[in-house]
Design a protein around this nucleic acid. Structure first.
Length: 481
RNA sequence: GGCCCUAUCGUCUAACGGUUAGGACACGGCCUUUUCAAGGCUGGAAUCAGAGUUCGAUUCUCUGUAGGGUCACCA
């Protein structure tokens, strides 16, 4: 068995934990945000009560379970900081499952049933060897057909008639248990006290309770979470745009933001506070205040949350991403490497202003934003026209103003270029006299070659004195040509 | 279709049976501004419908409607 040392000290030295929750995903696909929220709530509940949080990989479906998906679950959980105290793999519990199966058969609570094999669509399966219809021995649960009621922490009492469930199949054979049997036996043997899972399991609960009673297991406390929905209000799935947790990581989302965003789906602290750290959640989370209806996951709000966290991140995160993008620009980059480092450091705060996630930096660069800082803009006959301010279409006048701009900047000591505000002050009076747009627009366009960019003073500050003067000069030459 | 769950702005949600039904995201407008962002101010926007209980229903009850879940030799 695979039982790592408990990673928290929550119950060190204390009596046996009273509350045990579990997260039980099947490794049949990438771990997406819907499952992730279930894990988060189970985790929070266990930690809040000094209990234990168990990860159980439900890999009894040998055909669909893949090791890479299991790895993805573990990787995602680790990235999100949801540390578990114990880990089980359901397939490794087969002897225990067999034991209870045998016991139930011996007690007449289950029986072996010889039936024609069926595939997923319910069509008969042929035996490849004989060509005849294949026959399987299945193990069916002897359904007492009683009415089952259970209490749900979120929904109150739920009652269901179990007779129409018939004698459902609980195992393909003694060594191949199916979902319901495996879940009940594992929750029992692992001592799970609180089952926190998705609403889609509500209708599974009565048959699992039936099995509990048959093997003499106590009934755990249930909490069925509302579903996380796709845009079409149906259960979130991969094909409906559900992203894997690892994909959010690749897009540059922060784990804190994802935790925060997920927690707010179906739950709120009862105050207007929306930015909530894991510590806040541990303090404020309350299972009984969870919403009953499903919730659509709003990507835009997640981006906003991420931005809030990004503001408080060390700026080096932005600088590192800029490094990567700039190095992709290749050999055309204008500056020597030490100047490049300075430029990136100056640029980072400006970039931070216009991104929600670190991944947006890549998007910005792909769209050509900021690229002009590292490569001189190339003017064409069309773009040259844009050097001219809309209220001042005269090339001569514009060239004249640029010339004056150069003179002012040239007169400025190098140190003044360390601050955009100083550059602004130097030019402001002249700009106001001439009409701001007719001075500032050509200057900005000459420096960036773009219709959209930070203001000209910021550009001059970023580029430095020498490069700024070069570009302004180039523009004048162009205008005169 | 049977069974089950759910129902407040476009979205996430708040509101001991008494509120001008509040907030956030998104959206619009204005301000600031040479452009684009950012920022500030501001606007529009909801109790699914119908009965009942009550002096009074978003809130309690019932019915209807709508949406969702589930009905495997998947989990």
């Amino acid at each position: 068995m695979n039982v790592p040392t408990p990673k928290t000290a929550a119950n060190a030295g204390a009596a046996a934990p009273k509350i045990i929750t579990r997260f039980a995903p099947s490794p049949t696909g990438l771990f997406h945000v819907g499952s992730y929220r279930t894990a988060l709530f189970s985790y929070l509940y266990a930690r809040q009560h000094g209990g234990k949080f168990i990860l159980r990989i439900e890999d009894t479906d040998k055909l669909r379970s893949k090791p890479e998906y299991e790895a993805n679950i573990i990787e995602s959980l680790a990235w999100m900081g949801l540390e578990y105290d114990e880990k089980y793999r359901q397939s490794e519990q087969a002897p225990t499952h067999r034991k209870y199966l045998e016991q139930m058969i011996a007690e007449g609570k289950a029986y072996v049933s010889r039936e024609p094999a069926k595939d997923k669509e319910g069509n008969p399966v042929l035996d490849p060897a004989s060509g005849l219809q294949k026959i399987n021995d299945l193990i069916r649960f002897k359904n007492p057909g009683t009415r089952v009621a259970f209490t749900d922490l979120i929904r109150g009492t739920i009652e269901m008639e179990t007779a129409d469930l018939k004698d459902f199949v609980i195992a393909k054979n003694l060594d191949t248990p199916l979902f319901h049997l495996a879940v009940v036996v594992d929750d029992f043997t692992e001592g799970v006290t609180h089952i926190i899972r998705g609403e889609d399991h509500i209708s599974n609960t009565p048959r699992q309770i039936l099995i509990q009673r048959a093997i003499g297991a106590p009934e755990p406390i249930y909490a069925h979470l509302p579903l996380v929905l796709g845009e079409d209000r149906s259960k979130l799935s991969k094909r409906k745009g559900a992203l894997a947790v690892t994909e959010y990581r690749e897009q540059g989302f922060l784990p804190e933001a994802l935790i925060n965003g997920m927690a707010l789906l179906g739950w709120n602290p009862g105050t207007d506070q929306e930015i909530l750290s894991k510590t806040d959640l541990l303090k404020m989370f309350d299972l009984s205040k969870i919403q009953k209806g499903g919730a659509i996951f709003d990507q835009k709000k997640l981006r906003w949350i991420n931005k809030e966290y990004l503001k408080h991140q060390p700026i080096s995160a932005v600088e590192d991403a800029l490094d990567v993008e700039v190095s992709k620009l290749g050999t055309n980059a204008l500056f020597a490497s030490d100047h490049l480092t300075t430029l990136i450091r100056k640029l980072a705060p400006l970039v931070l202003e216009r991104i929600d996630t670190i991944g947006d930096i890549k998007t910005l660069f792909s769209a050509g934003e900021f690229v002009y800082l590292f490569k001189r803009p190339v003017f064409t006959t069309e773009t040259i026209v844009q050097l001219l301010w809309k209220d001042e279409p005269s090339k001569e006048k514009t060239a004249e103003r640029l010339t004056h701009t150069i003179e002012v900047l040239k007169a400025l000591p190098d140190a003044s270029f360390a601050d955009p505000e100083t550059i602004k002050q130097a030019l402001w009076k002249y700009a106001e006299e001439q009409g701001k747009g007719s001075v500032l627009w050509p200057m900005r366009f000459a420096l960036s070659g773009a219709t959209k960019s930070p203001d000209p003073f910021a550009l001059a500050f970023l580029l430095g004195k020498e490069e700024t003067l070069t570009r302004l000069n180039d523009a004048i030459i162009l205008l005169k040509a």
